[in-house]
């Protein structure tokens, strides 16, 4: 095969027309392979140069090379045009309605009592408290007697207990027995919280259940004072409910603390003015006091050398306040429509 100038002209005309009309980048790429690839007419023409007489070879070669350069240039320009068009029309060609959002990925939900306990643990672990656990099936010594609640004590009226068959074991009515167990097995300094389920034979209503959740706090060290208790309660309540809340400490009575106090936090709904969900602007959140010397002794700690404070709160009550739950019974209700709100 030989090459002549007319062939190169035809190749040039054909290439210019086809490059200009290539509809998209894929077609252009295909065209590039066809025109400049190993099987393309121009490559064949260049290959045929060798067979030309020497005097024609140089001119034909120059001619073919300039055509190749021209085609490459045209391809590049057209490629750029096509790219610009493609990017420029993206908004129209690939438009989607981004406001149509199918269900997000379903996740499991953690129980509100878990969530509130997490917060409580985090708040107290920042100031060096450990978590201690105790059995829910208790004996009378740890649940009552060691806490200054002998048989016939009026406090037993408010803590009507479930007894097991043997008549000696009962379901703990509060988390306070953990205080005794922990003191018996540890030496001061002690800083713990003890969360868990407690049980009382109470009629159930929106704020009472026969199974509910408390957490206990206990600090024993040299020279612990009521001011330390007050500061701790304020730190806790403001961490949990917000730094704008006010805390009120009033006198109270528990057999296992002396002096005993109660703590209330200002109502978040009425900011202390008084409303339906609070008592004259205040919400009771916990009972507390300085550990009674006899209770320290019952825990094997000498009240001459150590003092301490203890506090106890209803985890479910805190969760109700924090998460706006108005019926305590919901926590044990197992209804996924409720559980999935958390």
């Amino acid at each position: 095969m030989s090459v002549n100038v007319g062939d190169l002209d035809a190749i040039g005309i054909d290439a210019r027309r086809r490059i200009a009309s290539a509809p998209d980048e894929a077609a252009l790429e295909q065209l590039r392979v066809e025109l400049l690839g190993k099987k393309g007419g121009l490559t064949a023409a260049l290959r045929g140069l060798g067979r030309l007489p020497a005097d024609q070879r140089a001119a034909a070669g120059a001619r073919a090379n300039s055509l190749k350069a021209e085609i490459e240039g045209l391809l590049a320009t057209r490629a750029q045009q096509l790219q610009e068009t493609r990017i420029g029309t993206l908004a129209d060609r690939e438009w989607v309605d981004v406001t149509f959002v199918p269900n997000p990925i379903r996740r499991g939900h953690l129980h509100p009592l878990t969530l509130i306990l997490r917060e409580v643990k985090a708040i107290f672990s920042r100031i060096g408290y450990d978590v201690a656990l105790g059995p829910q099936v208790e004996d009378e010594f740890h649940n009552f007697e060691a806490l200054n609640i002998p048989q016939d004590h009026p406090a037993r009226d408010t803590m009507d207990s479930f007894y097991l068959e043997d008549g000696k074991l009962l379901l703990r009515t509060h988390t306070s027995p953990v205080q005794i167990r922990y003191m018996q097995s540890h030496t001061p300094p002690i800083r713990i919280i003890a969360p868990g389920a407690v049980y009382r034979r109470d009629a159930t209503d929106p704020s009472h259940g026969s199974q509910f959740y408390q957490f206990e706090g206990l600090v024993v060290d040299h020279d612990i004072r009521l001011s330390d208790l007050k500061g701790t309660i304020e730190y806790f309540a403001r961490s949990l409910f917000g730094s704008d809340r006010r805390i009120r400490i009033s006198g109270d009575h528990f057999p296992f603390t002396e002096p005993s106090i109660g703590a209330s936090v200002s109502c978040g709904l009425c900011d202390g003015a008084g409303c339906r969900s609070c008592k004259a602007g205040w919400l009771e959140i916990l009972g507390a006091g300085m550990v009674h010397p006899q209770v320290l002794r019952n825990g094997g700690i000498d009240p001459q050398h150590f003092s301490g404070f203890a506090f106890g709160a209803g985890l479910d009550r805190l969760a109700m306040l924090k998460y706006n739950v108005n019926d305590l019974r919901m926590f044990l209700d197992k209804d996924v429509s409720f559980l999935r709100q958390f």
Binding site: I127, A132, R191, D223, I261
Partner: peptide, 20 residues
């Protein structure tokens, strides 16, 4: 009045927390 009791936090001797 407990409102006249100052607010403090206990001791300088914070026990080492034994992660449970």
């Amino acid at each position: 009045g407990y409102d006249r009791v100052p607010s403090t936090l206990p001791g300088e001797r914070v026990p080492v927390r034994d992660l449970y």
